[in-house]
Amino acid sequence: EVTIKANLIFANGSTQTAEFKGTFEKATSEAYAYADTLKKDNGEYTVDVADKGYTLNIKFAG
């Protein structure tokens, strides 16, 4: 089991951190699915992958 950390960075400057656990593939998939649910209210997003994929910096356009 691994932990994927998602740093969520919103257009208004606020930030939030979420963690997803499971296999690497499952946790990564859940992180992207979570970002997709936030897209409606926060706009499109870009992802900067860090720490060999264990950290995702997800920035929303607003």
Rank of each mutant, 00 (worst) to 15 (best):
G62Q: 09
A18F: 12
G53W: 03
K5E: 06
Y34A: 04
T17W: 14
A35T: 03
V47P: 02
S14T: 12
F10W: 11
G22C: 02
T17Y: 15
A31V: 13
E1A: 07
K40S: 05
E1G: 08
D41C: 06
V2T: 10
E44G: 09
A61T: 14
E25R: 03
T55R: 05
A27K: 01
G62L: 09
A6F: 03
Q16R: 15
V2H: 09
L38M: 15
N57L: 13
F10D: 02
L38E: 03
A27S: 05
E44N: 15
Y34C: 04
S14N: 11
L56W: 04
E44F: 09
I9W: 15
I58F: 15
V47M: 05
A6C: 04
V2I: 11
E44P: 15
G13E: 08
K26N: 15
D48L: 12
T23Q: 13
T46K: 14
G43Y: 03
N42A: 13
Y54C: 04
V49W: 10
T46V: 12
A50K: 12
Y34S: 02
K39F: 05
D36S: 07
L56T: 01
T46R: 09
A6K: 00
F60K: 00
D48V: 14
A35R: 00
D51V: 02
Y54F: 14
Q16T: 13
L56C: 01
I4C: 02
L56N: 01
G62C: 07
G43H: 02
A27W: 01
T55K: 06
L38H: 08
K26L: 15
K26D: 15
T46M: 11
Y45I: 03
N7R: 13
G22Q: 03
Y34K: 04
T3R: 10
D41V: 15
K21A: 10
Y45T: 02
A31H: 02
I4D: 00
K40V: 07
S14R: 15
I4E: 00
K52A: 14
K26V: 13
F24G: 03
V2F: 07
V49H: 07
T37Q: 11
K52F: 11
T37N: 12
T37L: 07
G53N: 03
V49P: 07
L56D: 00
F60H: 01
T15F: 11
G22L: 01
T28K: 08
